[in-house]
Design a protein around this nucleic acid. Structure first.
Ligand code: FES
Ligand code: FES
Lengths: 147, 147
DNA sequence: AGTATTTCGGAGTCTTTTCTCTGAATATAA
DNA sequence: TTATATTCAGAGAAAAGACTCCGAAATACT
């Protein structure tokens, strides 16, 4: 289905970046995320609960409650989110699924792939959600003028 | 689960490379693939049937039957196999799953990811199964001396 | 011709992932 | 206090992906 990330992880990234676009500490309710990002309500709720448990987000119940970043936006990287949801085994495991991946007895694509995934990992570590919020040009993320 | 490729695709690559290691046109039965590569019998059979329909393999029924490459090994690329099984939508679609992926209204990772996937695609197109057969150092692929 | 070996085709099962529902608990505001 | 908005927790349904089974057709060997 989706390359590189699971659906969950995809949604997680979308949501966290959405939070980062808001001013520091502002709370966003699941409802808003669902409406703006088109993510199933109960599903994204579950995912954000998870990220809360992992310490990336903070949650507040009740009216005017919702989720917000638990850390400054520039201290949360893409890698952190992926790690929290999908895990990062892919940085170590064989592209063809062989039980071990190393330079000794490499599979046919090992040499090429080892470079690629290194580069992907650098991308994930190198992007923090503050940058992501800035670079996100999708209309879903632009805050609305009041009518 | 496995990044980039589905299980099916993974198995397909493993199997086709196995065929390419053999001398031109030599047939390999599902049985042998299952034993050597540790792939479930009926599953790999299905996958190879599929590749046959797509024109990458040739099949022969009956005793001493099996599968063999339908083309010279250096004319089948990794990309061909991936295309036949998983499809290649990933070369065009957004990493975060947004409905459209282009330079106009890009998502946060578009610029970085567009380069990465370009590079991945080049890798897939650039590797043919003849090279893959040569570079495969996994013991599963080394032909056995008779006892 | 008869038998064993193998692919073919389709249906069926199991497992994982995705998504939904429900009933709490908690906080805000009137 | 009451009503309301929200997260929390866990179970459950649906869909997709991975894998199995079976009966039939084709081929090779005796
Ligand atoms: S052994 Fe296959 S990618 Fe390293
Ligand atoms: S818009 Fe997201 S990768 Fe191109």
């Amino acid at each position: 289905m989706s390359i590189l990330f699971s659906r969950q992880c995809e949604y997680a990234i979308k949501a966290v970046v959405y939070l980062a676009v808001k001013k520091d500490g502002e709370r966003v309710a699941t409802n808003e995320l669902t409406r703006r990002l088109n993510i199933p309500y109960h599903f994204v709720a579950k995912i954000l609960q998870n990220l809360t448990k992992k310490g990336l987000l903070r949650s507040a119940k009740g009216p005017r409650g919702g989720f917000s970043l638990a850390l400054p936006a520039n201290e949360i990287t893409l890698f952190d989110i992926v790690d929290a949801i999908d895990g990062t085994a892919f940085t170590r495991s064989c592209l063809l699924g062989f039980p071990e991946c190393s330079g000794k007895n490499p599979c046919s694509v090992h040499n090429a792939w080892a470079l690629q995934r290194e580069s992907i990992q650098e991308m994930l570590v190198g992007k923090n959600v503050s940058q992501l919020a800035r670079d996100m040009k999708k209309p879903e993320y632009q805050s609305r003028r009041k009518g």
